[in-house]
Simulated assay, not measured.
Amino acid sequence: MVNVKEVKNYFRNYNKNLDYIEMYRNDLKESDVKYLENNKESEILKNAQTEIIIRDLLYYRLNDKEKNLIDMRYKYEMDVEEISNELYCSHSTYYRKMRQIYRKLSQELAKIKEIIK
Score class of each variant (00 low, 15 high):
101 I>L: 05
60 Y>W: 05
86 E>G: 01
68 N>H: 07
61 R>F: 04
19 D>T: 04
18 L>Y: 02
109 L>R: 10
5 K>G: 03
98 M>V: 04
88 Y>A: 11
114 E>T: 02
50 T>M: 10
57 L>M: 14
44 I>M: 10
101 I>E: 02
113 K>W: 13
85 N>S: 10
114 E>A: 09
97 K>V: 14
63 N>D: 07
92 S>T: 14
56 D>C: 05
16 K>L: 14
70 I>Q: 02
100 Q>C: 08
51 E>S: 10
109 L>I: 12
27 D>N: 10
6 E>G: 00
92 S>G: 07
115 I>A: 13
15 N>D: 03
116 I>K: 11
2 V>M: 11
9 N>V: 11
61 R>T: 04
9 N>H: 12
38 N>F: 15
107 Q>V: 13
19 D>A: 12
45 L>N: 03
90 S>M: 12
89 C>S: 06
57 L>H: 05
8 K>T: 08
88 Y>N: 08
109 L>T: 05
15 N>M: 10
41 E>H: 12
55 R>V: 07
93 T>Y: 15
17 N>Y: 01
102 Y>Q: 01
111 K>D: 05
3 N>V: 09
78 M>E: 04
67 K>T: 10
61 R>Y: 07
108 E>N: 03
103 R>C: 12
8 K>P: 00
7 V>F: 14
15 N>P: 00
89 C>P: 00
89 C>M: 15
55 R>N: 07
88 Y>T: 05
75 K>S: 06
114 E>H: 07
53 I>F: 13
68 N>W: 11
80 V>I: 14
73 R>E: 05
74 Y>W: 15
99 R>E: 05
37 E>T: 09
67 K>W: 08
95 Y>V: 03
70 I>K: 03
78 M>V: 07
104 K>P: 00
70 I>C: 05
51 E>Q: 12
63 N>L: 09
75 K>W: 11
9 N>Y: 11
